[in-house]
């Protein structure tokens, strides 16, 4: 199919992009285009205009300032994957990004686009939740920051205003004892996962002092499994604690049925991932393995 006709605008600055967004309420922002363009070609979306922000230098770059990693919105997945800074300062993102689609898509797709699109099956929103990312947005009234846990509000819905632009993601660099884990179960390499888990935490004295388990592909948004995580806090993720956490996962997740798996199968797989990912995060179990 062919996309319906639309206007194309390419602002030269972020300020101009914000102005265009205000004057064209039916416009959509075009960054990497990896979700938007297929939607246009399927005629699922019929915006009046595309505002191409893909060349705005103000939205590019990865940096660390005062213990915080700042990833500008236009950072391509391929840049994330190749960045030594990301590998060092956000090992979870480094682990997750290789699971995002295929090289051609990673070359175009952007972190800002992925977060703003808020696909419940995407890896990056779950990573943002697990890492307690702060999402910096710009609007006509200036800049504001939104915590990841407040950002993803529903199926493809976020707290981003229709006149706002996602500018950057900020993440604390790893502290002493920080641990990460990422696994997903996808039928084919690069597919959306049936279930995936991005986890971040802190180990102190052999026990989990902090743990955030961010599941994706299990609901309308990426979901923090707080009940399951609570079962593991203060433990060394021993088999009994893991079993309790697996049981508690039913209070966190109510996955939908779809073509790939039933709700019950998804919950089962989420439990398998819980055990595997959390075990991989514990230093002594890593040694044992």
């Amino acid at each position: 199919m062919k996309a319906p006709a639309f206007g194309y605008l390419r602002p030269a600055s972020l300020a101009e992009a914000l102005a265009l967004l205000q004057s064209h309420p039916d416009a959509k922002l075009l960054a990497g285009g990896q979700s938007l363009l297929p939607a246009l070609n399927l005629r699922l979306s019929q915006p009046s205009h595309l505002i191409d922000i893909g060349r705005l230098a103000e939205l590019c770059g990865i940096s660390v300032q005062q213990g915080r990693l700042r990833i500008a919105a236009l950072t391509r997945h391929a840049e994330l994957q190749a960045s030594p800074l990301i590998a060092q300062a956000a090992p979870l993102l480094h682990a997750a990004i290789q699971h995002v689609a295929h090289p051609a898509i990673r070359s175009r797709g952007t972190i800002g686009g992925s977060l703003a699109n808020a696909d419940p099956a995407a890896e990056l929103p779950a990573c943002a939740l697990a890492l307690q990312a702060r999402i910096d947005v710009l609007g006509p009234g200036g800049a504001r920051s939104i915590q990841a846990c407040d950002f993803f509000t529903g199926l493809f819905e976020t707290a981003l205003g229709s006149d706002e632009i996602l500018a950057a993601v900020e993440i604390d660099t790893p502290c002493e004892g920080a641990v990460f884990g990422f696994q997903e179960l996808a039928r084919r390499s690069g597919d959306y996962a049936i279930v995936g888990l991005a986890a971040a935490g802190r180990v102190e004295g052999g026990a989990l002092a902090e743990l955030r388990l961010a599941y994706f592909s299990v609901g309308a948004t990426a979901i923090l499994a707080t009940n399951a995580a609570a079962c593991l806090l203060g433990t060394a993720a021993d088999p009994a604690s893991l079993s309790r956490a697996e049981a508690a996962l039913a209070q966190d997740l109510d996955p939908p049925d779809d073509l790939q798996a039933s709700s019950a199968t998804r919950l089962h797989l989420a439990r398998v991932l819980l055990r595997r990912v959390v075990s991989s995060m514990m230093p002594q179990q890593r040694l044992a393995a």
Partner: peptide, 14 residues
């Protein structure tokens, strides 16, 4: 599942 995302053809990776 009449699309390439949901109809799974075999791919080299597997």
């Amino acid at each position: 599942n009449a699309n390439m995302a949901d109809y799974l053809v075999p791919m080299a990776g597997e």
